[in-house]
């Protein structure tokens, strides 16, 4: 699976690192690992419960935080889901979440791999 992880984005986060401060990339990726599963769960639960607001909120947040780490494919998928939720298109939402979990897992794995390389 092409996880479409933009390495430049991850590298540029490192570049923002200031001396004598907690490791920025570590903090951001840790944040991503702790927050993003909640977002994925929120979207999936939302579809199951046919709660469009829940879907919209979850996909919006996941869209932003994945884009921050260069996970452009995941972000794009979230953007589509958010748009569908906003336009009350539950059917499209159901369709789009089919591979969501797999894509999310692959993204997390890709990030971990990058971190190992970086270290």
């Amino acid at each position: 699976m092409n996880i479409n992880l933009d390495v430049n984005t991850l590298q540029s986060i490192s570049a923002l690192q200031r001396p004598n401060k907690p490791d920025l990339l570590e903090r951001v990726t840790a944040l991503f690992e702790s927050e993003s599963p909640k977002c994925v769960a929120q979207v999936l639960d939302g579809v199951a419960a046919k709660d469009l607001e829940m879907i919209r909120t979850g996909s919006h947040t996941l869209k932003s935080i994945s884009a921050n780490l260069g996970a452009m494919a995941l972000s794009a998928r979230c953007s589509d889901i958010e748009h569908a939720a906003r336009t009350d298109d539950l059917a499209t939402c159901e369709e789009l979440i089919q591979d969501l979990n797999a894509e999310f897992e692959a993204t997390v794995a890709g990030i971990r791999q990058f971190l190992q390389h970086a270290a």
């Binding site: 401060k21 903090r27 951001v28």
Partner: peptide
Amino acid sequence: DDVASLIMAEG
């Protein structure tokens, strides 16, 4: 509301 954004912008 995106904490990651806050962290990176802060840097």
